[in-house]
Design a protein around this nucleic acid. Sequence first.
DNA 1: TGAATAGTGTCTTTCAGACAATATGCC
DNA 2: GGCATATTGTCTGAAAGACACTATTCA
Lengths: 230, 230
Amino acid sequence: MKKNSRLPKNYNLQDFDRPSVTVDIVVFSILNGVLKILLIQRNILPFKGSWALPGGFVKMKETLDQAASRELLEETGIKKIYMEQLYTFGDIKRDPRTRVITIAYLALLPTTNVGLKADTDVADVKWFSVNKLPALAFDHQSIVSVALDRLKAKLQYSNIVKGLLPLTFTLGELQKTYEAVLGHPIDKRNFRKKIHSLDLLTPLEKLREGSSHRPAALYKFRSRDLVFFD
Amino acid sequence: MKKNSRLPKNYNLQDFDRPSVTVDIVVFSILNGVLKILLIQRNILPFKGSWALPGGFVKMKETLDQAASRELLEETGIKKIYMEQLYTFGDIKRDPRTRVITIAYLALLPTTNVGLKADTDVADVKWFSVNKLPALAFDHQSIVSVALDRLKAKLQYSNIVKGLLPLTFTLGELQKTYEAVLGHPIDKRNFRKKIHSLDLLTPLEKLREGSSHRPAALYKFRSRDLVFFD
DNA sequence: TGAATAGTGTCTTTCAGACAATATGCC
DNA sequence: GGCATATTGTCTGAAAGACACTATTCA
């Protein structure tokens, strides 16, 4: 260990024995009415061949949010989706190589955008149902668990569900999304009463076409931002 | 930059250009019925002489929680209080020296324990009212703001207020604590109705002594853990 | 006309919020 | 008795939750 001359005299020595810092992203999406998580199959050590969350090292000249977006794009081809910081995991032995602290992110992909591409460090990219996950690398199972709790909670007091839906959608699709995340059925009339009372949606002129039954009215969210209620 | 031989071949090169990692702690306490935050006056660069949150570098062989506890003890003499991870701040320029990512913690000190001692790196340790804070070093003002939001929110759906109170307390003291944090008065009858309906408290046999008026019944929290309701 | 989903209203219960009078202990 | 705080209940309005039938489109 040698002294870095740019730094002030009293600069803490620990600075020279630093943990690595990564980001990991839990991407949720609804496929066929089921809540899924995006996992990559690792092509490199450690845990080569295991399924894991997309993620990687934070660069010196990017923020944490930028690192999360970049890693997601690099490893899965996904960009411009809803993301928020979730929690930071720093157990000493969570990575067998060395000390790695990871800032976990929660991300939501609308049902429509589902074109995936695998990176070089990645053998494969796949969607898994949240209740049929394979064994995960590192402590990624804990991260997923925290992410799912956060998503369920936030569904109740914000319009975060917007991130899981396409730009326009029917009330039935909205309800199915809630049910898929929460894992239980919801009464249709109470649900619609509640949604309408919150005044979050704008009805469109058009109806959903192409079904072999009565077409439903289409809606979109009034606000582009995250809105809290309750 | 040279290669670390312990690491696998494909190990990411960024590993050798790592951000520093710190923890910072927002300690809240109620003093004279007012919500206060504990600040230290920095005795070292950068921001020497400025007020800042207690905190410091994370060591290689301690978890983030341990780092937060250790730094708080070292810089203020406080130990064994309620602490939870708050949020991670990673803007590129938040520290003028170099890239520093900090994991912020929220901590609560009961009204009774108020013996403070200053560390060598610390010129002074003082309590400040949350709405009369001095200019703070780094991005610590943002951190305080997030911490206050979290504390207010969590007061509404958990027994987190426990961390601000001594082991036994009266309903009046409990209500004053809520009022100090939330910043507005609460109706006494509605407050007591709600508290009793939640069934979080156990009444003690004893009454609060030493006042020149009718003594109030003493209570303690039923559970030692954080409990969620609503 | 049958299949499939869309769309709608009432009743009950629970909870939040407004509001004031009496009780107790100490001086 | 005066002061200071403790303790207690009712009414009203809003929202949550249980519950079932009619409407529309297409095949």
